[in-house]
């Protein structure tokens, strides 16, 4: 049987499968369905300094082979996450978890990462820079190399944990953003976040979600994600976590061949809650059939 262990820096994961932030809560819902310790890790719900209700409802819309969400970072806030969710999480998940942190100002990112830095059982801090900067006219941090680098430096100054910057695909050059994050000290890159999308109800003549726009995810975005992972792999030396529309063991192999060291599974968790155990179960056999002995051998294999 193929060895499907992989590495993110110094951290060895039993397999490359990681449920993505925002599709897995803090693990509790899925722990009722299967033993979540079979996962490589998981990335918990995007956490901000203050508790957030998020955007007004409705905030979910269906699209062809995907969905739009405008949940808007609904979360209990960093203090309640540390005091309430993390202790419960440690009761059900025995591996290091990925802490997904969001912010609307540099100070907020710093505050949250400083708090998380003191916690045990955090494998990586995954920093979501797709949020609007309230001090810069609402422009997302992730849309300019300078702002992305500024967040990276700020976060790195308050934590010794590995910092992976999670990039927005809604940019002119994903490569420039990734390079800026690497130069600013990022330990890794995670991509892609959702694509900005819209769904219009043709009977009501209005967007379906109250926020009008939202993040488009699901199998429809997979080729975009593979392309961006491929491009970023050529431009940086730090490890990449690939994500975006992953729905099968074949998709995982493809994403790793594009350059990902590990792979997050997002929207599919919502519609097929058993998707991650299914992929983990199929991966060794698929590797065998493709002549892959160690899954790490294929990272970036599509580059020649």
């Amino acid at each position: 049987m193929a060895d499907i262990r992989t590495r993110l820096g110094d951290w060895t994961l039993d397999n490359p499968i990681i449920p993505a932030s925002g599709t897995f809560g803090f693990g509790q819902e899925f722990a009722k369905l299967y033993d979540i310790n079979i996962l490589g890790s998981f990335s918990f719900k995007g956490t901000t300094k203050e508790p957030r209700f998020g955007n007004p409802t409705p905030r979910i819309a269906e699209c062809t082979a995907g969905m739009i969400n405008s949940v808007g970072l609904a979360n209990p806030g960093i203090d309640k996450v540390i005091a309430g969710e993390l202790p419960k999480l440690r009761g059900i998940f025995k591996k290091p978890v990925i802490a997904n942190i969001s912010g609307f100002s540099i100070d907020e990112y710093k505050y949250c990462c400083e708090r998380i830095d003191k916690e045990d059982g955090i494998g990586i801090i995954e920093v979501n820079i797709s949020c609007p900067n309230v001090h810069a006219g609402g422009m997302a941090f992730g849309t300019s190399p300078e702002a992305a680098a500024e967040v990276t430096r700020a976060v790195k100054s308050v934590t010794h944990k590995p910092v992976y910057m999670k990039l927005s695909p809604n940019v002119a050059s994903i490569v420039d953003i990734a390079k800026a994050c690497e130069a600013a000290g990022a330990d890794g890159i995670a991509l892609i976040n959702t694509l900005l999308g819209m769904k219009i109800d043709i009977k009501r003549r209005k967007p379906v979600v109250a926020n009008k726009m939202g993040g488009f995810s699901g199998p429809a975005i997979f080729p975009v994600a593979v392309r961006m992972v491929y491009q970023v792999y050529e431009a940086v030396k730090i490890p990449i976590i690939g994500m975006g529309g992953v729905a099968s063991a074949e998709d995982v192999i493809e994403m790793m061949m594009a350059g990902a060291s590990a792979v997050e599974v997002g929207a599919m968790n919502l519609t097929e809650p058993g998707i991650c155990p299914k992929i983990i179960g199929e991966l060794p056999g698929l590797c065998d059939s493709l002549g892959i002995e160690n899954i790490t051998d294929i990272i970036g294999a599509a580059h020649c």
């Binding site: 925002g22 599709t23 897995f24 809560g25 509790q28 819902e29 899925f30 719900k45 209700f53 998020g54 409802t57 409705p58 905030r59 979910i60 819309a61 969905m67 969400n69 949940v71 609904a74 379906v208 929207a267 968790n269 919502l270 519609t271 809650p273």
Partner: peptide, 22 residues
């Protein structure tokens, strides 16, 4: 009733404000 992504608590798409919080 609310539009739902998952139906089992994972996506937080269908939140409602109540007297005792979200």
């Amino acid at each position: 009733e609310e539009r739902m992504g998952c139906g089992f608590g994972a996506c937080v798409g269908c939140s409602v404000e109540t007297a005792s919080g979200f």
